[in-house]
Design a protein around this nucleic acid. Structure first.
Lengths: 194, 194
DNA sequence: CCTACCGATCGGTAGG
DNA sequence: CCTACCGATCGGTAGG
């Protein structure tokens, strides 16, 4: 029970930290400010986290997990490169739109991670991007996609996907599925051999 | 002559600040660190700038100027929506690739601007985006582009364009013109009516 | 989880 | 452009 309570408090802190980091940026949020929102003293944080940075680490690596778990299902289910890519985009968008605050931190504040955690993080990101790259390469090799530079294509795809946290509004006119559909169409039509 | 020297020093500071802000993020760079790189004492900054934030302001608004000036020429020269959009993308990419450090600050650190400057900045950005939006709307109305949500389309275009500063390498395999060409193709083919 | 506190560093100023 | 300095705030610790 005491264990349960601790875990809950840790989650609560993570949630509030995500929100404040997203709003002001990691470096602009102090432990005292975070403490005010949680309703404890700043010193009490250190019962749950070793440092300010370890909160950031928690947020960034949780998101990485989400992305990987979500993508894994897709690559098992589909076979055709354009279908896989479509589903992968959908899965990626789902993760972002379900965690907009954490996404902002994941995409913007990861740079404040220090070594060796920083390298771990970048390695994860590279691995994730490589899965997309492989799908794209296969589509090009099979003549489904136009032959373009792979790195360039992956970079462009991710830049449009990874901006969604910035403008997605749960109460807006697009559902996550509609965003994914439109984005897929725009991207796939641009890539497809004509 | 004394005036000339002052202006040069100010430019030198701006250049170094761009570089450090890009590398570590605005909030993570101290006046003392900047001073070390410039080769003066931290206190001496205040002969050139009123505050740390006014350096950031200088960088952000210089970039805004560059974007506007560059776009203005394009909209005067071309008439067809898809041609205008192509040229506008090229001009946008040129500005980014010619100022990668300043671009990073422009795209990431503008959020540390405080009011009322922040609102001024956002207003400029909105104006710039609206020029693109108009071009796109015209293309849709004329049946050149597929009818999609304009906001969505503009957001997606900018997200892929505005990520270029992150990976562009002057010594890499793509010239700015080639990047613009590939990006235009990917985007326009995705949008064009088929 | 709190009180009490630390050294370090921050942006900025006074005065020359 | 520098020396000398300011108050405020930072992340974090000791000890209970």
């Amino acid at each position: 029970m005491s264990k349960d309570k601790t875990i809950k408090r840790k989650d609560q802190i993570t949630l509030i930290a995500q929100n404040k980091f997203r709003e002001k940026g990691y470096r602009a949020v102090s432990m005292r400010e975070l403490a005010d929102h949680v309703g404890i003293e700043a010193a009490s944080f250190y019962n749950h986290f070793n440092s300010k940075e370890s909160i950031l680490k928690e947020i960034c690596f949780r998101m990485a997990d989400e992305f990987f778990n979500s993508l894994e299902k897709v690559t098992h289910d589909e076979k055709l490169p354009d279908k896989i890519l479509e589903k992968a985009i959908q899965s990626h968008i789902k993760v972002i739109t379900s965690n907009t605050d954490a996404s902002a931190v994941f995409f913007l504040d990861w740079r404040y991670l220090s070594e060796p955690v920083l390298s771990e993080f970048l390695e994860l990101r590279r691995k994730y991007e490589n899965i997309f790259r492989k799908i794209i390469k296969e589509g090009m090799d099979k003549g489904i996609f136009e032959k373009l530079d792979e790195t360039f294509t992956v970079l462009t795809i991710f830049s449009s996907l990874n901006w969604v946290y910035e403008w997605y509004d749960p109460k807006g006119k697009f559902t996550p599925d509609q965003i994914a559909e439109n984005l897929s169409k725009l991207i796939l039509d641009g890539m497809r051999k004509q």
